[in-house]
Design a binder for these strands. Structure first.
Lengths: 268, 268
DNA sequence: TTTGTAGTTCCAAATAATGAAACTGAGTTT
DNA sequence: AAACTCAGTTTCATTATTTGGAACTACAAA
């Protein structure tokens, strides 16, 4: 992808290891990368040494390392969005009784940053950190619709347009039209475009200056409800999104921030 | 710390940004680093460009980037421990009704990888990814006790020995003695060594070859229970630790692993 | 023993990182 | 308005690091 020097290459290697959804051997990585043997080898050494990768000597495999978990923790708690949004998600989840998501845009994909699940208790990293397509999800479209022109063009052109269901929008033109509608209306819907039976409404989170920070959504299933029922939540979701946006903006210069991390650790 | 070339330096910068528990300006970073202006500047550029950092143009501040969250998700799901341990933690939490932790050792600190909270619902990243001291926590001591000699020496010498409470072990000698006991007995206790009123028992997770993978703990408070009551859980915790160890080992070559990630996404 | 496969090390050539110094530009003081 | 800060950005000759073909090792299978 990008190639800013040594650091860029190292990041590529990290992504590659992460892309295998399992512990991976040197040879496999070598095959799927353009790096020469020795070069890749040294990268793996260095990254392992740094804790960015972890190496299992028994099985001779690499996986993404624990240091990433540490750093991601910092990313989450320092983010200008997730910690602020947390209590709002709690409330929205309680009120609606449905699944609630907080997402941000990361290289034109949807990255789920937090979640409240209707049924089960929250599931740690196996939820947050997950990525999904932008062109066929509520949060994805809500976010793209509020990008500035240049960024929107880039985003639209970088979608895969894979047809997940009959209703998936599979062309730039169709997506653009929907985004236009979303922008004027202020919220996005996903009408089984990603998964059959799954519908959702989503609102963007914006600063007063109009910068798009992320999106929140409420998801339902066609088995339990129809679209009209789901759409009754739109005003509420929009208000919550506005509140989050306002609070996020308010932390202009936190100086001392009431750290989302300060909750008693009590862990031993 | 370590300095393997450009990559090591880049990782240092990431850590530095993460260490400020808030969005941080260029000048602040410059002050707290040894890098010359231009060098640091270029690192920040590149890392931001790569999504490892995120830059807020409004406030001119850097924070750890979203790409880290994505990568950490992969680290968690691909880890040979966390996904396997999950159902066991659920069970242990249900049975004991107490707070349960899964931890791994990361540069001789305790890194909490998963958690079940007695009272409240789970708290996302603000829990997993957190780090703590090893010399005065149950999981920390349980893990150190089962390191090989060289690694143990290193670990013991790298603790800070800050006195958190009256009961904190504050010397290498005292810690070594406790670790010796722990090793022979098979479990560790934390008797208010980290926080007053907080007690805990912890068992290491080992492969059959004796490699230490992590530890689990059950935590209680002196207000609700005494040590004897808590220690009745030791056999159970030990058994769970053994089971996790066995399963972790069993995934020698998963080929297709029943991915902890396969839970229906249903997110839009 | 030979052959093959997977991983590791070497070192001269190619490339990228370095950092002092100069520059910019928005805001402030004289 | 000119001079001055201060925070951030760019330049470029020098320096240090990365690079990768090829040679090597270790082990397993034929």
């Amino acid at each position: 992808m990008a190639g800013d020097g040594t650091i860029g290459k190292a990041c590529d290697v990290l992504d590659q290891v992460a892309a295998f959804a399992r512990p991976v051997r040197f040879a496999e990585l070598l095959e799927s990368s353009n790096f020469p043997k020795a070069t890749l080898y040294r990268f793996l050494q260095t990254l392992t040494n740094q804790g960015m990768l972890s190496y299992d000597p028994d099985r001779q495999t690499y996986t993404p390392g624990l240091r990433l978990v540490r750093l991601a923790h910092a990313a989450w708690t320092q983010s200008s969005l997730a910690p602020i949004a947390r209590p709002f998600l709690d409330a929205l989840s309680r009120e609606t009784g449905e699944t609630v998501h907080l997402a941000q845009l990361d290289s034109n994909q949807v990255l789920y940053v937090d979640k409240r699940n209707a049924a089960q208790p929250i599931e740690m990293y196996s939820q947050a950190g997950k990525v999904g397509p932008a062109y066929c999800t509520g949060v994805g479209k809500a976010m793209m619709a509020f990008l500035d022109e240049a960024a929107l063009d880039r985003a639209v052109s970088q979608q895969s347009y894979h047809r997940f269901t009959d209703k998936t929008l599979t062309s730039e033109a169709a997506l653009r039209a929907d985004l236009h509608l979303i922008r004027s209306r202020g919220y996005a819907v996903d009408d089984e475009e990603h998964e059959p039976g799954i519908i959702c409404i989503a609102c963007p989170i914006l600063t007063s200056g109009g910068r798009m920070l992320g999106a929140i959504s409420v998801t339902g299933s066609t088995e339990r409800m129809n679209f009209d029922q789901l759409e009754t939540w739109v005003p509420r979701v929009r208000r919550v999104a506005e509140q989050i946006g306002a609070e996020a903006q308010a932390w202009r210069f936190p100086e001392t921030r009431p750290s989302a991390d300060t909750d008693r650790m009590q862990a031993t």
